[in-house]
Amino acid sequence: MVVDAHHHLWDLDVRDQEWITGAAMAPIRRSFGIQDLKPLAAKAGVDATVVVQTVSVAEETPELLAIAAEEALLLAAVVGWVDLTADGVAERLAELRELPGGEFLKGIRHQVQGEPDPRWLCREDVRRGLRAVGAAGLAYELLTLPSQLAAATETVTALEDVRFVLDHCSKPPVATGEIEPWASLIRDLARRPNITSKLSGLVTEADWARWTLDDLRPYADVVLAAFGPDRLMGRLGLAGVHAGRLVRTRAGHR
């Protein structure tokens, strides 16, 4: 079974995607829906996909769940968003699960990369929310920058009952060719048994105009060696910004 572990859907008529700006992003400044995804998935031999939140807006997650309810043969899981710092995270998660498609909610994500505090993940209100995510049986997806990896490791270590998934290899500086301190931080994080990683997002950190597989290989090698094939999952990037190459790994999204 081939699973695309990470893709996005959005409708610009419903809400803007403020991160899609500038000339380089112009090719994807349009809506991407399930009808865009289906033929690409079929062509690539994809059996199921995981759709992931794009914005920190409460209304988006019910919308994605509703799509999953209608397209259960393709959309196997939804990674949504809740405000981890708010009171009542457990109650909000329970409410989401009662909605149409609520059974497809398998994880929660927040764009930690946009938080100015490099230790945001270590805040007690954030960790309280993460504990609620874990108690609900959901995974938490880490979208971090290399400068936030130390805090991520501290939090993954502290919350050993929570399952974590690292998105996009924590966005290493592929365009510059630097590999440290990112590589050492990744190896340290991977020593924690309650985290897996997606081998994804490397193209978006490369020089978009002239990247090659040789540019990506050192970073992929670090992640593969650190996590091993049984704790890696891949994605095709069938819709949205992540127009990457097929990566087949043995791990699935839980």
Rank of each mutant, 00 (worst) to 15 (best):
D207T: 15
A206Y: 02
G177M: 10
A206S: 08
L202P: 09
S184A: 15
T153H: 11
P146G: 05
R123N: 07
P172N: 03
H168N: 13
D117W: 04
V156G: 06
P118N: 04
L121S: 13
A139E: 07
A135I: 01
Q148F: 02
L142D: 06
G129V: 06
D125F: 03
C169K: 03
T155L: 08
T176N: 06
P173E: 01
R131V: 12
C122M: 07
P193C: 11
E178W: 07
A158T: 00
E178N: 14
A139Q: 12
E154W: 00
L130C: 06
E154T: 11
E154D: 14
L121N: 09
K198M: 04
A158G: 08
W182L: 06
G177Q: 08
G137H: 11
R187A: 06
R187V: 09
L202G: 04
L199R: 00
L189E: 04
P173Y: 04
N194Y: 14
P116V: 03
T153M: 01
E178V: 12
V165H: 08
G177F: 06
E154N: 05
R128H: 11
L130W: 06
S184G: 14
A132Q: 11
Y140G: 03
P193L: 10
E141W: 09
L189R: 03
L166W: 05
A139D: 10
R119P: 00
A183G: 10
L159R: 09
E205Y: 03
P193N: 12
D125I: 07
F164G: 05
R123D: 12
A175I: 11
E124H: 00
R191A: 15
D125M: 06
L142R: 01
A158R: 11
L149E: 14
V203P: 13
I195F: 08
E124R: 10
K198E: 05
Y140A: 00
G134M: 08
T204A: 08
S200H: 01
V133S: 02
T153C: 11
G201W: 01
L189C: 06
R191S: 15
K171A: 00
P172W: 02
K198H: 03
L145T: 11
V174M: 03
K198T: 01
K198W: 04
Q148K: 04
Y140H: 12
R192K: 14
E154R: 10
T157F: 10
S184M: 03
R123E: 13
V203A: 07
E124A: 13
T176Q: 15
V156K: 10
A206D: 00
D207G: 12
C122W: 01
Q148H: 06
W182Q: 04
D188Q: 12
T157H: 13
D207S: 15
A150T: 14
S184K: 09
A139F: 10
L189M: 07
D207N: 15
E178Y: 09
R191Q: 15
A150N: 10
D161P: 09
C122Y: 01
L166K: 02
L142K: 06
L130N: 05
R163V: 14
S197Y: 01
G137I: 13
A151S: 14
I186S: 09
L199C: 08
S200I: 02
S147N: 07
G129I: 05
L202H: 05
H168L: 11
L189H: 04
L138K: 05
P173M: 02
D188G: 09
V174S: 08
V133A: 02
I186L: 10
T176V: 03
E160Q: 15
L138E: 01
R191Y: 07
T176E: 12
E124M: 09
L130S: 03
L189Q: 04
